[in-house]
Design a protein around this nucleic acid. Sequence first.
DNA 1: GAATAGATCCGC
DNA 2: CGGATCTATTCA
Length: 171
Amino acid sequence: MTKLTRDFFLQPTLEVAQNLLGKEMVFGGKRGVIYETEAYIGQEDPACHAAKGLTPRTKVMFGLGGHSYVYLIYGMYHCLNFVTEVEGFPAAVLIRGVWLPEKDIRLNGPGKVCQYFGISRMHNAVDLVNHSHFYVTSGITIPFFTQTPRIGIRQGLDKLWRFVGDITSTR
DNA sequence: GAATAGATCCGC
DNA sequence: CGGATCTATTCA
């Protein structure tokens, strides 16, 4: 298991979103295999939080790839993203699904992922490349995945920027 | 200041 | 299908 470096997160966001399938995220003592992601890319993407420019909340998205972006949604759930691309270009990948192989539990949904790991807004803007308890490793290979529109949004539904890895193809 | 929509989840 | 629950952002 080798820790992912800066280069990984500086790839084009759609590639990062796909390449994150099968990667293992580590937070504190917990770990799990990422199998579902969504890409949010730049100010031309109406579903991207940064579409309307730089605000206190979207500041992280404009920063250097490899940092965490955590926000509260609907007053009760947190969503974890990994910022991508170079400084100045706002983009991130939402972690929608994590698989816990030992118990074959699927955390299906961004709120459940953060709830399990105990991730909240205090973990926003963490540099995953230079952190000893919050990072991503090489993980496993997921041979197949499907692409669909992103979930829960009302704009940008024409883009197939949700990636779902086929966990069953790995066992 | 007030209004509103929101990258969710659960239960009926 | 609606309720929970809060806040970032927009509008006045």
